[in-house]
Design a protein around this nucleic acid. Structure first.
Lengths: 270, 270
DNA sequence: GTCAGTTGTCCTATACGCTATACAACTACC
DNA sequence: GGTAGTTGTATAGCGTATAGGACAACTGAC
């Protein structure tokens, strides 16, 4: 995908409509508001509206019919992956086997201070840094940047990383994983990430930062993952735990990956 | 909040630099490349570079000193709220008491198809729709849209909703909550949400969709929440559960809100 | 102090995103 | 068939982002 120099207002409107379509707020098959109506609604000229729609049309999201209107196309979309939480890492390992991986970068570096601190490294200690893109059905859906302390990273090779899930490699090397801490947030696609994931710059991304610790309490892996929200989201079930008046809840070891995939897409794709 | 119309190339460069700073790739306190150097490196004019830097400076990310250079400022982090997962709803109830709420909208409507379906409503059945903005320290951080079946919504008033947490209202009305299903994703700020949260249109947002069910299996509440990622993020601890070779993990009833706030800001604020 | 290098400010010229308007071709509906 | 409403196309003009250059004020190192 070429870096499309889409102007400001047009780009914003395109992104906004894209989101509404992806979230099901505008149902597939239904007619979009007319170009003049959209222009009025968003306070832009019709030319700008058309540029935004051009972008959606070229991505096959909408169907324009002269004299009739523009319609939301039925998504031939491969259903998004829904990651379950209760057995999260298990699921990830399975996924690593089912999906493809592109290794974009592999090197030993001095990690950013934040990474070094979270891993508990000594000053000046190096890490193995890898950047990978995960694919499902040939479509990229996640952009992973990992840092592993050099002493551990040396136990496997670059080609290992391109084929075997990292968690398996870590266990194989004897660096047992004991616990992990992770944070979920949201961010925008920077140019390099956008290109790798086939997105426009400034598209929304799910962001996950996970630090995995070994039994000795030392950091084993620092993962920064960026997900395309239209192809990947997190799903969990909460069940009541505790007395009636207590209002305590806990995540439940919910459904399997298969049943989770059967979740209504309008919810799962949000 | 004025919609700052940041141009194309400047915006891109600003985004890129913002990411490099946030990720720690450019360490706090260190000097940035000079403006002419950045211009050359990114193939833009110095004017454009300066516009990008203006944006970062106005956000307090960098410090420009005439004759010396521009430096990455030490983040005086306004600590973001970190929501813990294990006891999620409990935390939410507590938060509802500590934080402020603005009720933006309150009405009875025919819900979108996706909402009606997830709540298990009959065709044509109405819901009570409310839009609220949550504040912490007077700063908005979440935009909540809820749908509650009409029969339940009638048990409390508009003013109740503006002061008492919705979950408490539901329990007070006898509609005991049994389990919930939720999905986490990411999206962009639409104009109305952007204004309510004090953001620019197109800013990234954490998106959470939760459907709460009663003991009879019927839907009690449909919540669509949008969070400012710089003020709110999700945090969880994962602990190994199961045998050594099994690689099973489960969320842990982790730390309290206080200790969670002590998480390195570079991670929590990503 | 000297000097290379930095940010701050101003200028001109060009490129282009955006608006506004008009009209043609087409479609769905009455 | 008529008609209102739609998308497709073209035009002109305005505002502004961008490029490129020049100079001043300032800093830090030598």
């Amino acid at each position: 995908m070429d870096v499309s120099l889409e102007p400001l207002k047009a780009r914003r409107l395109a992104l906004l409509l894209r989101e509404r379509i992806a979230s099901g707020e505008i149902a597939p098959g239904s007619r979009l508001a007319s170009e003049p109506a959209l222009a009025l609604e968003h306070g832009v000229s019709r030319v700008t509206v058309r540029r935004a729609l051009d972008s959606l049309a070229s991505d096959g999201l909408i169907d324009r019919r002269v004299g009739a209107g523009t319609f939301v196309r039925e998504p031939e979309a491969p259903k998004p992956i829904v990651a379950d939480f209760a057995n999260m890492l298990t699921h990830l390992v399975e996924m690593g086997r089912r999906t493809g991986v592109h290794l974009l970068s592999f090197s030993y570096v001095h990690p950013p201070e934040a990474v070094a601190h979270s891993l508990g490294l000594a000053a000046g200690e190096r890490t193995q840094r890898s950047v990978r893109v995960r694919l499902i059905d040939g479509q990229p859906f996640s952009y992973l940047t990992t840092h592993v302390p050099e002493r551990i990273g040396l136990t496997y090779s670059e080609s290992d990383l391109a084929s075997v899930p990292l968690l398996s490699l870590l266990e194989r090397s004897g660096a047992a994983v004991e616990r992990a801490s992770q944070t979920i947030s949201a961010t925008l696609a920077s140019p390099d990430v956008a290109e790798a994931l086939g997105l426009e710059i400034g598209s929304p991304l799910l962001s996950l930062t996970r630090v995995v610790f070994g039994p000795d309490g030392r950091g084993v892996e620092h993962l920064h993952a960026l997900y395309r929200p239209d192809r990947y989201s997190f799903q969990m079930e909460l069940h009541r735990a505790g007395d009636a008046g207590e209002r305590r809840w806990s995540p439940a070891p919910a459904r399997t990956a298969e049943s989770a995939d059967a979740v209504p897409t309008a919810v799962g794709a949000a």
